[in-house]
Write a protein that binds this DNA or RNA. Structure first.
Lengths: 229, 229
DNA sequence: GCGGGCGCTAAACATACGTTCAGCTCCGGC
DNA sequence: GCCGGAGCTGAACGTATGTTTAGCGCCCGC
């Protein structure tokens, strides 16, 4: 079992691994173009020459960082699809997709930040990661749907995307959540609480009295005109 | 032309405005550090010297681009809060926040990309924009809540964030949606359809029948009339 | 007419950056 | 003992990039 999950942490003893680790962190924090090889060398406490000695070039370094990330992600992906393929109920679905994320939560401060960058910078492999992720979510929904678990009036086209929004929202916006809440949305208890709020929203919505018999508490304000331009 | 909305489009006749416009586009597409002043000069069909002549430095240029964006955003923000302050029902809320976005949808290919980039790069003003956005959403929810419009078991801490996720999801992930659907999620009909899916999810959830996590007033599926046009 | 400011250009300049290279230390095998 | 390779260093190199500067043409007020 311990073998199923690829090791996340590189040995910081060797200079090569230190460079890889530091580069991943800096790329995630500042973006590829904003980080200089001298920054990396300084942070990893090695000479600039060593980076090119091991990785050929700055681009080569990025390739290796990407490869390392994808190696980890691939393991999680396979794990996810394997479990996901057996899911047919909404409850189960919400369980495994969250578990799939939570399983590696301890390694996330580094990995999540890097994935966030990759997604937002639209790296070529970032697009591939997203595509796979979409496939996972979509096929899971399809199975739930086939089992009658999706309400009939729900838009099948948008449902996977809306669910993805909810799932990756914390990933993409955590820097700002941190500023508002004072701590990361990935913190254990916050994360768990978020999962419950998320599950509840998918199951029942959030507004009360879904029945149209709402006691319109305020006198009728002028309703906004439909978006027109 | 309505005077209430600050002009979005600069006059591309003057070199200064061309630079501003091109810079906004390139910064949004590639990120500040990846764009060189020579790129901008070439794309705006001016000399490199003109950029520093008008803006002093590349950083000065960014400041002006930011200022122009914020000018536009501020108008939309005030417009949003003014209307938003009068909203107390969930229906209205969902209406105005979407209208607030839809109103400027034609200017979005440029503005959205720039905002997306600002959020990605965690610029200081990007954080400020997010904070204000959060305040808008949160206070709107609070009013709805005070009017009894929020279901009691809903997590008040996470609700604003989950709603924000749904709202900005398309903004942040549109490049990938484009690859999957073949066109932008901001396209008129897709956007409208997304809004309905979004409203429906908030009102009723998406799963059918299934047992809600909490004893809900009605474990059986609740039916809603289709959103009136 | 003309002086001066404004928009603008193109070349020159200084520096930051990615890359290269000669050479150092350490260590295992012969 | 010493050879050879691996890990590593720091200075040097070439180029890309942001900035500065000298100067041109146009237009407006006097």
């Amino acid at each position: 079992m311990s073998n199923a999950v690829v090791k996340f942490r590189l040995e910081p003893k060797s200079g090569r691994d230190r460079i890889l680790l530091v580069a991943m962190r800096l790329f995630g924090e500042q973006g590829f173009d904003s980080v200089t090889v001298r920054d990396i060398a300084a942070a990893a406490d090695v000479s600039v020459g060593l980076i090119n000695h091991h990785f050929g070039s700055k681009d080569g370094l990025r390739d290796q960082v990407d490869a390392h990330f994808l190696e980890v992600f691939e393991a999680a992906y396979l794990e996810g699809t394997r479990v996901g393929a057996e899911v047919t109920s909404a409850e189960e679905y919400s369980q495994w997709i969250e578990a799939w994320i939570s399983r590696h939560v301890d390694d996330w401060p580094l990995l999540a930040q890097y994935l966030r960058r990759a997604l937002l910078e639209e790296s070529d492999w970032g697009a591939e990661v997203f595509r796979r992720y979409y496939d996972i979510v979509r096929s899971a929904i399809d199975r739930v749907d086939a089992a009658g678990g999706v309400a009939p009036e729900v838009d099948r086209l948008w449902l996977p995307f809306l669910i993805i929004y909810l799932q990756v929202g914390t990933l993409l916006l955590d820097p700002y959540i941190k500023r508002i809440l004072g701590r990361s949305g990935f913190d254990r208890d916050l994360w768990r609480r978020r999962h419950e709020a998320y599950s509840h929203m998918l199951a029942s919505g959030v507004w009360s009295g879904g029945a149209p018999a709402r006691p319109s508490p305020r006198p009728t304000r002028r309703r906004r005109p439909p978006p027109e331009k």
